[in-house]
Every structure is written in structure tokens, then in C-alpha cells.
Design a protein around this nucleic acid. Structure first.
Length: 320
DNA sequence: AACTCGTCCAACCGCTGGATA
DNA sequence: TTATCCAGCGGTTGGACGAGT
């Protein structure tokens, strides 16, 4: 589709770093008129800037919720985990880090973490090749290596305002429990199925306690008072899962089985620009703290997937 | 002091896809 | 149905800055 560029290069528009004066003009304008309609905003505000540039400046720098300052170690660990899970889905990752922008996280990853990952990987290779004795397997793998298949969601806008029902959030942590014995014994494909089935069935059970809605629907409600229930068919999610699955059964499971909707809800977020409930805050906190606080533990469990890992913890708690 | 080099990060760019006329 | 608008995404660029020589 042909579309004229947002800002013609011929136009006498300013580029490059923003001045404090420009910032003030933009802030003042948005304070009065709100943001949106970025194309017309510069003209109305009296800025010689491209609308896109204004939007970027606001979203990445001037916005009231932007958190400045260094990335904390907790945030860093969360970024690493989410990147393992989501890949370069910076906006999704940013959605889990309040006050951080996708641009900031992307920059941080590219300048700090990707290098560290590479170093860890190289170090891993060296130690792996040097340890020839099978009776003494490598005991110091990289703490950041997590071979969980990346889940990719399409970053789509959602025209219908969806709110995660507060009751649902209160019901967290979502019981991401996995049959540990099955996970330990099964093939990769079976593991994936077990993971999805287990997540779904546990979540389904949880939801059934809180909702009387039909299983075909998810407990998402509109902002309207009439609490319209929206089916997941209203949500556009494709390329939804990149999990490896030898016999294709996982996709079938996701698409055809009665747990598919719940898998969508548990694994994927309908939002691209909002904090998501892919995993509950409790779970993310557990990942951050439980996993990394105990160095010996995480070293020994390096090959566990995130879900596996969490499931072990959950099962341990249950046993206790 | 002057220069080079590497790093960081704000900003830019091209593209996508939903919304709309 | 089509063309255009618009917001958003992710990759890339380039200027500022500090460290090293």
C-alpha cells in the first residue's frame, strides 16, 4: 500500500538531539492536549519536528512514567529471562519492566547483555570441550543459558480495550505446575506437551474456581460495566509458538484441543504495549530471586527450562 | 594537548498491520 | 475493495564522551 512518508526529507524539519526548549514545548503541549495524533502535533505545538520524532521523544524520554537511571540487577535478570523466553520482542519485555522503554532495554541488551551472553557461550564451549571425562560432567555452565524455545507473539494492537480482571490477578500465582516425573522422563516433544497440558489444566482448574464462564471464553472483560466477555478469537495472535515438536503434536494440541484457549492465555499476551500477565508477577519474582539468589542451585539446574525450573520449585513447595 | 578508538544511547529509518474514509 | 492514515515495532545510525596512546 502506498503511503506518503511521515516526514518528507525535503521539509525544513529539525533532526538530531532535542533541546531543553523543544522538550518543554512538547511537554506543555501534551500536558494540555494529551498525546496522539502525532502527525499534526508538531505543527500545532509549534515544533519543527517530525511527528514520529515527537512521539519517540515522548515515549522514550519525556513520558511521566519513564524511569531514568541504571538498570538494576533484578531488572537485568528479568530482561535476560524474558529475552530467553521472547527473543527480541523489546516492547513485550519492556511491558514487564515498569518505567523502562523498549528502546532502553534494546540498547542495554545490545551494549551489555548480548556481549555477556556471547562470552558465556564461548566460555561454555571451552569448558565443554576441555572436559573429556564423562564421569565428571561440566558443573559450571553459564548461569544465563536457558534453552527454552522462544515464544513469539505477534505484536498487534488490540482495538477492543481489554482489562485483565482483577480477580484473576488476585488469584495468582498461576499454578504453573508440571508433572515432574513426566517431564524428567519424557522426550522433548512430550515435555512440551506436558508443559502445555499441565499449565493449561492447572490454570483451567484455577479459573473454574473463579469464573462461571463457558470454557470457550476467557475471563477478559471490557471496560464497560456490562462486563462483556470476549472470546480469544477477538485477539489476533499468530506465529504464536515456536516450540519444537517432533511430531507436530504441540501445534495440534494448541489449535485443536480444548485447552488451546487456555494455552493462549497462559503463554501469550494479547497486549503488546501493556504489562502482561503471561506470567504472574509472583512467578517472575520467583524466577528472578529464587533462581539467581542461589548460585549453586542454578548452576546445577542449568539445563532446566524456565517452566521446568519453576515447576520443580512449585512441586518442592507442595511437597513441603 | 592531540589524536584514535571503543562504548553508549538517543534518535532515525523502514516496515507492518489495524483503522478508517 | 482500495488507498491512506496512524501508531507501533525492531534494526541501525551517528554524535557525544571517556579511555588509552
Amino acid at each position: 500500500m502506498g503511503r506518503s512518508p511521515c516526514c518528507s526529507k525535503d521539509e525544513d524539519l529539525k533532526r538530531g538531539a532535542w533541546t531543553a526548549e523543544e522538550d518543554k514545548i512538547l511537554i506543555d503541549y501534551i500536558r494540555v492536549h494529551g498525546h496522539g495524533r502525532w502527525r499534526n502535533l508538531p505543527q500545532k505545538a509549534g515544533l519543527k519536528r517530525c511527528g514520529k520524532s515527537c512521539r519517540l521523544r515522548w515515549l522514550n524520554y519525556l513520558g511521566p512514567d519513564i524511569k531514568r537511571g541504571n538498570i538494576s540487577s533484578d531488572e537485568e535478570e528479568l530482561i535476560i529471562r524474558l529475552h530467553n523466553l521472547l527473543g527480541n520482542r523489546w516492547s513485550l519485555i519492556a511491558g514487564r519492566l515498569p518505567g523502562r522503554t523498549d528502546n532502553e532495554i534494546k540498547n542495554y541488551w545490545n551494549t551489555n547483555l548480548s556481549k555477556r551472553m556471547k562470552d558465556n557461550k564461548d566460555h561454555n564451549k571451552e569448558t565443554t570441550t576441555s572436559s573429556s571425562n564423562p564421569k565428571h560432567p561440566q558443573t559450571e555452565p553459564t548461569p544465563f543459558k536457558i534453552d527454552l524455545p522462544v515464544i513469539r507473539t505477534k505484536a498487534t494492537k488490540c482495538s477492543k480495550p481489554l482489562l485483565i480482571n482483577n480477580n484473576a490477578q488476585q488469584s495468582t500465582p498461576i499454578p504453573l505446575l508440571l508433572d515432574a516425573s513426566a517431564a524428567a522422563a519424557g522426550s522433548e516433544a512430550n515435555n512440551n506437551k506436558n508443559i502445555v497440558s499441565s499449565i493449561a489444566s492447572n490454570h483451567k482448574e484455577l479459573l473454574s474456581k473463579n469464573y462461571n464462564s463457558n470454557d470457550e471464553f476467557l475471563p477478559f472483560f471490557s471496560e464497560d460495566d456490562d462486563k462483556e466477555i470476549l472470546s480469544m478469537t477477538d485477539l489476533l495472535i499468530d506465529d504464536y509458538c515456536n516450540l519444537t515438536d517432533a511430531d507436530g503434536g504441540l501445534n495440534d494440541l494448541l489449535i485443536n484441543s480444548d485447552v488451546s484457549d487456555l494455552c493462549y492465555e497462559v503463554l501469550l499476551s494479547p497486549y503488546s504495549d501493556q504489562p502482561t500477565t503471561i506470567f504472574s508477577d509472583d512467578i517472575l519474582n520467583q524466577w528472578t530471586h529464587s533462581y539467581f539468589d542461589d548460585a549453586d542451585d542454578h548452576i546445577n539446574h542449568d539445563d532446566d527450562s524456565i517452566v521446568d525450573r519453576h515447576c520443580h520449585q512449585s512441586n518442592d513447595k507442595e511437597i513441603e
